[in-house]
Nucleic acid binder design. Structure first.
Lengths: 142, 142
DNA sequence: ACCAATAGTGGGTTTCGACCTACAATATAC
DNA sequence: GTATATTGTAGGTCGAAACCCACTATTGGT
């Protein structure tokens, strides 16, 4: 009685959507405990991995609206995790960078994300996990 | 410059969430063209696969709120895809069933979903697609 | 010097899924 | 037969993501 309709579960898009929602909500729940949303770690990760960005560049990289980046950065700045300094070469731009505290916060968040990963992949053997990651990567990259 | 942060893409939950969102939005876009949402096919599929349900049973099976089921059925009824008849054994219950027109509509929707599947899995070889489906199934079932 | 384009900001709206509460009709327990 | 529980219904709220427009400061082209 609690089974889902096979007509749906036969479709990869349905399963992906379902598993994706589950992944998303678990990560979001962890973040919500600290009053954070999904874009906060995304922005921190972009800064940590690629160095300072103009806000416009962050928006382009992460597929966010420029005005939403402003709001997220307001909050990250308030926590001392990022800082905005005027780009002297182009005073319209803000050079956004991550702080040491920001890196620390990010590593904590990513550790929690790794735990979610483990939970999600629990039904798979180690070999299968590696396979799955590889295939998923291909799909997500496209 | 358009690359995503490796710190994120290293995590299965991030990739799943991203791929799931993509799957979800593609299917939703197809449905939106007919003014439908994701629950409409879910309900039709449940009825087609398992036969008539009370509304409460539909809600339980699909993890929907009972009041949302009411609204969805109002719309499905209006299209002639489902019908509600009082259960004579328990006159509180509505026996919800799918109509012939409903089955036809469902098969059209599922065909579109299959096309989305093909799009999503395009980067994989046929063998990899089968592997991926199998692994994804395990994850989604848990 | 002037005009068009660009970067950031503030203040919105819209959409969707999830949820919640009150209520009428009906069934079940005692 | 009366109290309690359940089914469907109506009419909301709420949070999150995505998007959009108007505005200021600044730059670059000519």
């Amino acid at each position: 009685m609690h089974d889902l309709p096979p007509s749906l579960t036969a479709h990869a898009s349905y399963l992906l959507s379902k598993a994706g929602k589950s992944a998303r909500s678990r990560v979001a729940a962890d973040l919500a405990a600290d009053d954070l949303r999904l874009w906060h770690p995304a922005i921190l990760a972009a800064l940590a991995d690629f160095g300072p960005h103009a806000q416009r560049e962050l928006a382009a990289r992460l597929n966010l609206d420029a005005s939403d980046v402003v709001k997220a950065l307001d909050e990250l700045d308030a926590r001392g995790w990022t800082e905005r300094t005027r780009d002297p070469a182009d005073r319209r731009r803000h050079r956004v960078d991550i702080t040491a505290a920001g890196r620390l916060a990010l590593s904590g968040i990513l550790a929690a994300t790794s735990r979610v990963d483990d939970e999600l992949l629990k039904p798979l053997s180690p070999r299968q996990r590696e396979q799955f990651r590889r295939l998923l990567r291909k799909i997500a990259d496209a």
